[in-house]
Amino acid sequence: MTPRRTLLGAAAPLFAFSVAFTALPGRAAAQAWEPSRPITILVPAGTGGGADQMARAIQGIVSKHNLARQPVVVQNKPGGAGAEAFLEVKNSRGNPHLLVITLSNLFTTPLATGVPVSWRDLTPVKMMALDQFVLWVHAESPWRSVPEFIAAAREGRLRMGGTGSRQEDQIITVAIERATGARFTYVPFRGGGEVAVQLVGRHVDATVNNPIEAVQHWRSGTLRPLCVFDSKRLTVTDKVTETMAWSDIPTCKEAGLDVEYLMLRGIFGAPGIAPAVVQYYVNLLDRVRATPEWQQLMTEGAFNLTTMTGEAFAQWVAREEERHRSLMAEAGFLAR
């Protein structure tokens, strides 16, 4: 298919040209681009995780509010730590109906494996939000605060569960090790939902799940948040449990653990798509962000609501890539 898609991509301008001519009696070719096939959003991770939930929310919102002429289809491609999804987008040059929702593996997978793909091979469309990370332990564990947890970790090796290998969860784990001198046994699982359940079942001692992956277990009283890896406290003040809201969780820094990490939840398109196509998706996603369902998702998952498009977004991504390169170099995760 790869060569076919490229061929189609090359033929597209020609084709558009001929359509413009046949349409001459009427107005010139329409200014705004509209999708002519279903829009596919690739998820470079397993089901149930943060990226998956967000992609499915977009799918649902678009069809519920009738925001696009064509349906949105979500496809999980967790293969190769997400490399498969990114490669597919990279190889679909000019395909305007393919999007990918990213998590940090946009940076970490190429760096850790040497897979020849980078965000520069894709077209940045829009930053939807930034996702937080929270240090979770089981509610029945004796650790009620970060210092208690760190002290226990220094005493004996604790088991830290996370999504994938040499990705954000492990990077944070290594950062905690560096900041405290404690050692963890990092155990990789396939998706954030699975990681949270492993903690509920006490097969691991702690996780750094995103809020949305663990919130249900927090509400049901099986998990306890210790701190959030951001410079400021979370802004959502609605009570999640009887006594606590997201905003009641201390930042890790104020709790004595100087580690910060935020993750991009952004939408990228195939390389070489026209500016009109990018503009279409920016508008579409803006409308998605304005719906009550989206706002509910943002509250539920306590997201950082920063959004960017265009050049500002590209620059932000470039900085983030550099940061990951240095973080991963420190941890010894770079591909040899």
Binding site: M1, R4, R37, P38, P71
Partner: peptide
């Protein structure tokens, strides 16, 4: 079913 197959 919106499944795209190879075309020529």
């Amino acid at each position: 079913f919106f499944v795209s197959l190879p075309k020529g």
